[in-house]
Amino acid sequence: MQRKDFLEHVAWTGAGIAYALSAGGLMTGTALARGVTGSIDFVQISDSHIGFHQEANPDVSATLQSAVNAINALPDQPKFVIHTGDVTHLSKPEQFGTAKDILSQLRAPLIVIPGEHDFIGQDYNSFFQAFPTPKGGKQWFSWDQNGTHFVALINVFDFEKMGLLGNDQLTWLKRDLAAQSRSTPIVVFTHAPLYALFPSWGWTTEDGTKAIAMLQPFDNVTVLSGHIHQVVTHQEGNIRFATADATAYPQPAPGTADKPGPLTLPHDQLLRAIGYRNVVLEKGHAAAIDDRRFA
């Protein structure tokens, strides 16, 4: 369904969507009418590592800017853009500042969740000051939009376990999902992959299986993550997992190198290995995920 058709569909069903933008441009609105089912499109970007300046990408600000420019040029603007973490490389104030300068140019509302590179020094405040959550808390959150239930989880709070949700978050998630009908499409965002994608490189969530068990009963679940700087898809029952490319630099495919870390490619190849992702959710269909590279 194209956006135009969707708008007509909304008009036809008489449902309305309200948005409120905070001063920071963050989305704070929710669908006015629960149970509205139409389509929704949004964009995911990830792993910008602002401040990184090594050979794998000497100018990560420029490639994040490329993503913002490309998203702003989309004829149909996404309902929101979510950044799934590692906005900065070293959590430095000037790195948060640069990231905010670039990301605030987005025309669509912006949502940002943290990665472990945004919490260096065991400091959570710098991130949340730069990128407040829609409801202002320093934690996970969910919202409803166009008949879809979106959940933003944070699995980088614990420094000795990568990643970890923790019991408080799992308890919250259980309650949050209990309020949803099984046919409601669910989209979950995390930084580190929620399933054991490649645990020996830290590409996992140690208690992710508990969250996955809570998601299993739903008809249509999509889990979108970052952290590993490449697209890897995976299916468990009705749950579709897809990690995203970085805007900064790629990492080796699981097990193809001794260690993870920045993968240095010639510049033209770099631009074919980083980018952003467009996602369209239509009623009764699995999410259509379109990964778009810079070259």
């Binding site: 472990e116 260096i120 420094f159 000795e160 376990k161 990568m162 020996s200 830290g202 993870p260």
Partner: peptide
């Protein structure tokens, strides 16, 4: 001690 970015 450990690396908080790569706890392994």
């Amino acid at each position: 001690y450990f690396c908080s970015l790569h706890p392994y």
